[in-house]
Each structure stands twice: as C-alpha cells, then as structure tokens.
C-alpha cells in the first residue's frame, strides 16, 4: 500500500528538470490519467475512481450492446445450435450464413431493404436541397412576410405527426398515391425542423461576404452554390443523417400507406414476418440485422457530425 503510494512521488523528481517532454522527440512524457497523491489537479479522478469509471462504462456497454450482439449471433446460428440454451451462447457452435438466404422464403427482405433505401435516399436529397433553399431565404435574406413564414414553420413543431396521420392518409389517397412508395415518401420530403436548422446556420454567414457577391453580380443561384453551400455543409450533413435515419426507421406512416406486401418497406416487412409466420427466430434475427447493420455503419462513419447535430438541434430547437 505505502510503496505503491510512494512510487509516483519518488519518480517525478527523478526526471531531469531541464529536459522538457517536447524535446524528447517522439518519446513524449505521458501524463497519468489519474490523480496521484499530492497532486493538485483536482479535475482528475483518483486511480480507484478511474477503475470504477471504466467498470461502469463496461457495464453500460454490455447492457446497450448485449441484445444487439446476441441477435447478431443468433442470426448466424445453424439448426444444430440450441437457441434456447441458458446461459445464452454468444458464439455459434454450428455457424452458418444460411439464415440470410432462408429468410427470403418468407418475405422478400432484400427488396424491402431496397424500398427503404429508395425512400430514405429521396428523403435525404429533397430535405437537403429544399432546406438549403428555404433556410437561405429565411436566414440571410430580408423580405416582407418572413415572420409569417417562420411562424408557420415553428407552429408545426408543436404538432406531433401522429395527430395528422389519419387526415394525411386521406390526402395521399385522394392524390392516388395510396399503397405506393411515393405516398410513403411525400409527406416527409421537407421537414420544418430541417429548414430551421439550416436557417440558423445561414444566419452565421457574414453579411459582408454575401453583399460582396452581390456587388460582383452573382446571381441567387451562384450565391447559394458558392457561398451558402460551403458554409452550411456541416449542418446539411446533420440534416441528411437525421433524414436518412428517420425515413429508414419509420414504421407508423408506411404501415398506414402500404397494403400490398410486395411494396412494404423493411420495418413494415419485419413486423409482418413476425406477425404472420411462425418464423424461426434465427430468420427474424437475420432480418433485423439486415435492417440494423447499414444504419450502424452509416452512423459510425458520420458520428462526428451527428453528435454536434443532436446537441445543437435539441438545445436550440
């Protein structure tokens, strides 16, 4: 006990005072992560504190990822694996990728994934383009009636989408778009929230830059293309990620619009598989992984933008 406590304090004066860590080239002096005895740096946790912290982090990780990992493992379990064993086996003893093929005996899961992808990509494109247009006008242009437009957009933020689904379905049906992917896509083509996020980003563009462009004779389109877009790209990527995940994960609206099982999106198709067939849990697991993996990959690669967006969107909005 005493020796471990003493060890760091005897070490630190031993380092030559003249040699600065930076001068040591690549061998940088590493600051310990925890507070040593006698250290005045209160912001660092003590060693037991640090161990507890990592212990808790690992515990939460197991709770959060456990069900997903278990589902992943189930999706690779063969007919010889006992999927009801306890404690649950994470590593399949009879591994197979067969489930990803056999699931198509029940539902055309890859076609459903394609449908979801179509709707999601279309949602991303229209949301990004149209939000940049509207956001630019609202954030950086002066015009009569702007307050009214802002009011209209803001008022819908209080309105949960579930309240209007019945009425929206009547609209879609009257347009002749019931039971079609266009009908699934249409109401989500632009979100008021996205316009407001881009408008906030456009407000940050210095007026002088836009004015200079006007003096130089840039048209509205050129200003959007060369000044607004580079400035709001960060926020636009946030909008894009949110729009994609929102469309990919949506369930209620496609469930209402789509009747024909050959037109289902992935979420509706998965619920259909679960509800209408006595399907092998391994197949359902494979289906859920098909729905989950693309979005996890997308998110992991873009998580930098994502965290910024959630923080900004939730606190300001």
């Amino acid at each position: 006990m005493t020796t471990t406590d003493l060890a760091p304090s005897t070490q630190s004066p031993a380092t030559p005072p003249g040699r600065r860590p930076q001068q040591a080239g690549r061998r940088r002096h590493r600051e310990p992560l925890y507070r040593r005895k006698g250290s005045g740096d209160f912001t660092k946790p003590s060693l037991p504190g640090l161990v507890t912290r990592y212990g808790l982090l690992a515990f939460v990780t197991v709770i959060v990822v456990g069900p997903l990992v278990w589902q992943l493992s189930t999706s690779f379990k063969g007919p010889l694996d006992d999927i009801y064993s306890f404690p649950p086996a994470i590593v399949p003893t009879d591994p197979t990728a067969e489930n990803y093929v056999r699931v198509t005996d029940f539902i055309p899961v890859y076609r459903y994934a394609w449908h979801s992808l179509l709707v999601s990509v279309a949602t991303v494109l229209s949301n990004v383009v149209l939000s940049v247009f509207a956001g630019y006008a609202l954030g950086a242009m002066r015009f009569r009636g702007k307050i009214v437009v802002m009011g209209v957009l803001l008022s819908t933020m209080l309105l949960p989408g579930e309240v209007t689904v019945t009425s929206n379905f009547l609209t879609i049906r009257n347009l002749g778009l019931a039971d079609s992917l266009v009908g699934v896509y249409l109401p989500g083509a632009i979100g008021a929230m996205n316009v407001l996020l881009i408008a906030t980003a456009c407000r940050m563009i210095p007026h002088e830059v836009l004015d200079a462009a006007i003096v130089d004779g840039a048209t509205t389109w050129q200003r959007i293309r060369h000044i607004v877009w580079p400035n709001v790209k960060g926020m636009a990527s946030v909008v894009a990620i949110f729009a994609f995940i929102g469309a990919w994960d949506d369930f209620l609206w496609p469930l209402i619009v789509l009747n024909d099982p050959s037109k289902y999106t992935l979420t509706v198709g998965m619920a259909y598989l679960n509800g209408n067939f006595q399907a092998d849990p391994r197949l359902i697991a494979a289906g859920t992984m098909i729905a989950l993996v693309p979005i996890v990959v997308l998110f992991s690669s873009l998580q930098r933008f994502f965290f910024r967006g959630v923080a900004e969107g939730a606190v300001k909005g």
Partner: peptide, 29 residues
C-alpha cells in the same frame, strides 16, 4: 439585390409542404 419574389420561390416548397401535410391536415382533423 434580389427580385421581390426570389425569397418566396426559395421558401415555397417548404411552406407548401408544411401547409399541405401539417397545417391543413390538422385543421381537417
């Protein structure tokens, strides 16, 4: 520097969508 209708053209899709798929259905409901 813009014509009076330029901002309106830019916000038109967003406004139309919000009116058609949020405000109108709400009043209709």
């Amino acid at each position: 520097s813009h014509r009076w209708f330029t901002p309106w053209l830019l916000v038109a899709p967003a406004v139309v969508w919000v009116v058609v798929f949020a405000l109108w259905p709400f009043l209709n409901t």
